[in-house]
Amino acid sequence: MLEVIESINWSLVAPFIVIQFILMIIGLVDWAKTKQTNGPRWMWLFIIIFLNIIGPILYFIFGRRE
């Protein structure tokens, strides 16, 4: 397993991870600012944090109340 981790060129994969992270942060900031969401507010916190990539997208599409 260690060899695999060493063999991966992290400068290639880093943007992928960074973008996921940015998405999560933006989702969290937006979540913290809104008082009301569609459905339970705490549920969305867990969705944003624990579902990679899809979590923040789901929140932006279905969770936000316009």
Binding site: P15, F16, I19, Q20, I22, L23, I26, G27, D30, I53, P56, I57, F60, R64, E66
Partner: peptide
């Protein structure tokens, strides 16, 4: 304001490079 201009490009980048 509803952050579409931030998250949509990010999601499209992820889809493209995945």
């Amino acid at each position: 304001r509803n952050k579409k201009w931030i998250w949509v490009p990010l999601v499209f980048i992820l889809l493209a490079i995945m």
